[in-house]
Amino acid sequence: MRVNRRDFLRYACLIVPAGVVPLSRRLIGATAESSAKQKYSLEGHKYAFIVDSTRCIGCGECVRSCNMENKVPEGFVRTWVERYTTTKSGKVIVDSTYDVWRQRKKAERFNFEELKSVPAADISKAFFLPKLCNHCANPPCVPVCPVGATYQSPEGVVLTDPNYCFGCGYCIQACPYGVRFKNPITHTADKCTWCYHRIVKGLLPACVEICPTGARQFGDAAIAGSPIAQVLESAKLHVLRKDFGTNPKVYYIELNPEVR
């Protein structure tokens, strides 16, 4: 892979500190000071998550920190990173941080494996892509729940109620993104909550907090002029599986068509 000037500039921005990244990291922090003093209000938030896949370096820190923060049981993840490798003949090979776990190696680490099946000279393009719950504005998982144990909070965060869910798995089937799973410890549906317990305290989701390159950004677009609001207004954004009409609130900067 040759590094052209555009690429260089892009990565220069992640290497040069005090660029976009630390700014976005403080974006919630700034509101935290004010809102932590008052009681958190369920009204007036418009959270959005932006994934800049061009910045992802595939270190897997997001997956590790998420598993720690949310005590995700072994064998499952609430967020993961995929790697898309395109060969010169046009074949697309996909693997994820999770595959290493699946092979029971270095269980705690969630690294990417060496891609042995393809010689380096054959690769024409390769990139990482973080995935997590899209917190759809029109979530297919919520209306199917027979008992009302999964719901959209007033802020639009899709949450589950492990104390009311009876574990039928209907919502897991309804999700086109495969982000839900049945927690083998609680026997209820489980999923990414955007670290709801953190964001209501003015903190960032654990995966955003830990991301060393700013590939994951999160914020409240209801705050006028906040970096996330600016990105939402100005950047070219994409969502996953637009054909399902789910209106995700996780936006991707640059999304290749081979991503599903």
């Binding site: 590094v3 690429d7 370096i57 270190c59 790697r83 898309y84 990417f112 060496e114 390769a126 060393p212």
Partner: peptide
């Protein structure tokens, strides 16, 4: 974790 040469990791 970040500095190992793996496929798709930006060379910059």
């Amino acid at each position: 974790l970040c500095h190992h040469a793996i496929v798709a990791r930006p060379k910059v």
